[in-house]
Simulated scan of single mutants.
Amino acid sequence: MPAPLRPTASGSSNFVFKHYSGALTQTDGEIRGRRVDDYLFRFEGGKQVLISMDHEDDDLDPLLQVYPAANRQGADPIAGDDDSGGRMNAFLSFTPEESGDYIVRATGSTSDRSIGSYRLRVGQQP
């Protein structure tokens, strides 16, 4: 068995995350059969963004999508994730090409799993 490595870090970064509590309800807007909460963020181009969405009850299977603010009705997000956060939670990493306003869409992965409470965390590389 090989000996474990003792890694030497080549650098570090300090992400500061902001936390948001939310809930998708029957009164939220609906796009393509799913309830959605759209959040507006300003991201700097060329700096990595990390976003997670964790469900707080079993009625929601989180899905994250990111759109340019000017085209949030578009069919294809520039980034998205369904289950990379473990236990049906969503986690994504993306680096915007340009600085500007972006929509982070919190929704459910299917129309029958799109209602419930969640916690959203958003951070960008300093």
Rank of each mutant, 00 (worst) to 15 (best):
G11S: 01
Y20G: 03
I78W: 11
D54E: 07
S84L: 14
N71S: 15
G74E: 02
K18E: 15
L50M: 03
G74Q: 04
S21A: 05
P77C: 10
R113Y: 00
D28H: 02
Y118M: 01
F43W: 04
R119N: 09
G45L: 06
T107P: 08
I103R: 13
Q26P: 03
F15V: 02
F15Y: 05
L60Y: 10
S109M: 05
S12C: 02
S99D: 01
D58L: 05
V66W: 02
S111N: 15
R42V: 10
G85F: 03
Q73G: 15
D59E: 03
R105P: 02
F15D: 01
T27R: 11
P96D: 03
N71Q: 14
S52V: 04
I51C: 04
D112Y: 04
G100E: 14
D101Y: 13
S99P: 01
L50D: 00
L5A: 14
T107G: 11
V36I: 15
L60T: 08
G80R: 04
S10T: 05
F91T: 08
V36N: 14
F15W: 03
S117Q: 06
S10N: 04
Q65E: 15
L92R: 00
L5N: 09
V49P: 09
D61C: 07
P126A: 13
A79F: 10
F17Y: 13
G45I: 06
A3M: 10
D59P: 00
L63P: 01
S12Q: 05
A3F: 11
A79N: 12
F15P: 00
R35N: 01
R6P: 05
G29R: 05
R72W: 12
Y39E: 13
T95S: 08
G116A: 08
F41Y: 05
F17V: 06
F91Q: 11
A69M: 13
M1D: 08
V36P: 09
G85D: 10
S21G: 02
L24K: 13
G11I: 00
L24G: 12
S117P: 02
A3E: 12
G11L: 00
P77D: 09
R119S: 09
R87P: 00
D54F: 02
P68R: 15
E44L: 12
D112V: 07
V16Y: 03
E44M: 10
E44Y: 12
S12H: 03
N71P: 02
G100V: 15
V16T: 07
P77Y: 11
R42I: 07
R113C: 01
R72D: 14
R119V: 09
P7Y: 13
Y20C: 05
G45K: 08
E30L: 14
T110H: 11
P4V: 07
G86A: 11
E98V: 13
N89F: 02
H55Q: 08
M88T: 09
R72Y: 14
Y39T: 13
S111E: 14
S111W: 14
R105C: 05
Q26A: 11
F17A: 08
G123M: 06
T25L: 11
